[in-house]
Amino acid sequence: MTPVATPLLEVDNLSVRFHTDRGILPAVDGVSFDVAAGETLAIVGESGSGKSVTAMSILRLVQRPAGEIASGRVMFEGRDLLKLSEQQMQEIRGDGIAMISQEPMSSLNPALTIGLQVGEPLNRHRGLSWSAALQEAEALLRRVHIPDAANRVRAYPHEFSGGMRQRAMIAMALACTPRLIIADEPTTALDVTVQAQILELLKQLTREVGSAMILITHDLGVVARYADRVCVMYAGRVVESGTALEIYEDPRHPYTLGLMASVPRLDDDARQRLVPIDGQPPDLANMPPGCAFAPRCRFAIDRCRREQPALDPVDGSQHRKACFADVTEIH
């Protein structure tokens, strides 16, 4: 939590565009954030807000030729990942930075055994023979609490449940003890009961290994429990960032406020209606000139529709927001 002189990962003014039939879509537009060693940063936002694209750009896995990292820097351990050769990048993927995808059902190769896949990063990066990698895979499966790991290394993905597959994915990501793990909605496809188990496991293991984590999610409950710091994204931009506590206790951006209000609570009156955020997210091909949230914002003033607000600090702290209005005074 304490800010370190040089963060592990520093994303600076990252922009990613997609060239489509409908024109150039600015999926990520001038995003900056950093992650300190061992820390968990949550990136929150609704579908299409650019969370996943941001994560993919860190590993430079944005689909080409449609997707293009237009500008920015991604500094990881002192090197700009965007300037590395493809080969140097391959050395980092799975070793320095590992990724856990949001689809455990389809992220494992159906034609290969679990053990081979969990052990593959070790074979790739540590030069372990396949038999040694398989033994390590068994140990890794045990670490993610897969019962009967000795036999399960020989199982195929279709013999695993969704939760077990996600555990296997976690084992795979941890194989080379990466300094950073990017978990892209790791629990979206899972049952609610399993979600909690997986997140607990992820938190516990990253702590053991000392990895930092970028947790991409749209679940604010998850954020509160597992993140140290939070970035809220909307339409490809960071609209608010701060520690988890700041974001929860004192949200300053109308969009964050809307997100908080829309989360149903168990202690709500059952007849009470959910509070949605009015309107639709903007069309990326047709962005408003000012603040992207202005058309949906209750607090919008004329300036919001003309000018893009910068991500400025709130009262000199680490808490930052991109909004002209002073939300606390209004509500």
Binding site: L61, Q87, Q90, R93, M99, S101, S107, N109, R124
Partner: peptide, 9 residues
């Protein structure tokens, strides 16, 4: 993609 994300050439 998962294979690419572990650094497979």
């Amino acid at each position: 993609y998962a294979a690419q994300s572990i650094g497979a050439a």
